[in-house]
């Protein structure tokens, strides 16, 4: 009964037309082979591809390095994804990528996953991200807060008005705008201020505040509210200095420290987190990856302020370069 029509299907032309969209976008760029095993050592013949994924905080650094790297090595294809630190480690330990961007050190369970999959890696510290504690530029009474006071603000069942933080402060409601619990910034703040969440004696973070994973949204909230309080990466404060005020933070010694590149780099400012790249050892055997990582460590101190972070102490880069040898 059902005899297949043998001749060309006319309406197939329509789908063909759609398929032609493909033809319209054939790549015109430097091809670049896949494995760059040939011509080891010769800088200008490096080719191949390097896949990076992980923290969206570190991604701008990797992107900037890739941007500079391709000026000399246009045949090396570098791709940078932003699956988040956790997502990046998952792919890294599943052998799917060469380099993992991370805004925290690798966790034990992630190490186990890597070990189980036979992924051997090297950790490189590439920079520091200061965490700014901020309020609106309209706020007058907030100058300096201690780590304990930060804990009073952000713990579960913590202060709801400013005079509960310090009796000298006015009896005004605290308007909190802070990163949501999916954010690496949140994890870092909670661990530094309230203590390791895995330990029973640590304080629990509150959840009754305005949360957003987008720091620009937090900036908007904080600037408009006189009694606001919040925290995010130093870069977001720097770009909004005219509407925000950074609150100084006092650590164990009680000295109030203002966040700046200098205080973050020297370690005087108590709230800054290290930024890492993790490189697969098997990938480091490839000349293009080795050269990329070397270039990364050498160039980062010059370019990292362009993307809003602070360079790590010089020794970090030096010891990294030594490990490469």
């Amino acid at each position: 009964m059902r005899r297949l029509g043998g001749r060309g299907i006319r309406w197939g032309a329509v789908s063909l037309a759609l398929a032609l969209v493909l033809a319209g976008c054939g790549g015109d760029d430097d091809g670049g082979g896949t494995a760059g095993t040939g011509g080891a050592g010769e800088q200008h013949t490096l080719s191949g591809s390097i896949s990076i994924d992980g923290s969206s905080t570190v991604a701008p650094v990797s992107e900037a390095i890739a941007e500079e790297f391709r000026k000399d090595h246009s045949a090396v294809n570098v791709s940078v994804g932003t699956s988040g630190t956790g997502g990046g480690f998952k792919k890294f330990c599943a052998n799917e990528i060469d380099i993992a961007d991370a805004s925290r050190p690798i966790k034990d369970e992630e190490k186990e996953a890597c070990a189980a999959a036979g992924v051997d890696f090297t950790e490189f510290r590439v920079g520091l991200d200061g965490l700014a504690i901020v309020t609106s530029a309209q706020n007058e009474f907030l100058q300096c807060l201690s780590i304990e006071q930060l804990a009073t603000i952000f713990k579960d069942g913590g202060a709801s008005t400013w005079n509960q933080v310090d009796p000298k402060f006015p009896n005004q409601k605290i308007a909190i705008f802070a990163p949501g619990s999916d954010s690496g910034t949140y994890d870092f703040f909670v661990e530094e201020v309230l203590g390791d969440p895995k330990k029973p004696e640590s304080l629990k973070p509150r959840s009754d505040y305005t949360a957003s994973e987008d720091d620009n949204t937090l900036v908007q909230g904080i600037k408009g509210e006189k009694n606001s309080w919040g925290y995010f990466g130093f870069a977001y404060f720097n770009e909004n200095k005219n509407v925000l005020k950074a609150i100084k933070v006092s650590g164990k010694d009680g000295k109030c420290v203002e966040p700046s590149d200098a205080t973050v780099e020297s370690g005087d400012y108590p709230l800054s987190r290290p930024l890492f790249i993790y490189v697969k050892k098997s990938a480091l055997a490839r000349p293009e990856v080795k050269e990329f990582v070397r270039f990364y460590l050498e160039t980062t101190p010059e370019i990292i302020t362009d993307v809003g972070y602070t360079a790590a102490p010089e020794e970090d880069y030096k010891s990294g370069l030594d490990q490469l040898k």
Binding site: D28, E67, N77, V78, S79, V80, G81, G233
Partner: peptide, 30 residues
Amino acid sequence: AVSIFNTPDDVRDPFSALPVLIFNWTSRPQ
């Protein structure tokens, strides 16, 4: 990928896409 510095040559290549790039750019500090 968000940052990629070559256009794809065939279907096995990694890629970026406009919505992904827009999403990433809106979350940058600058």
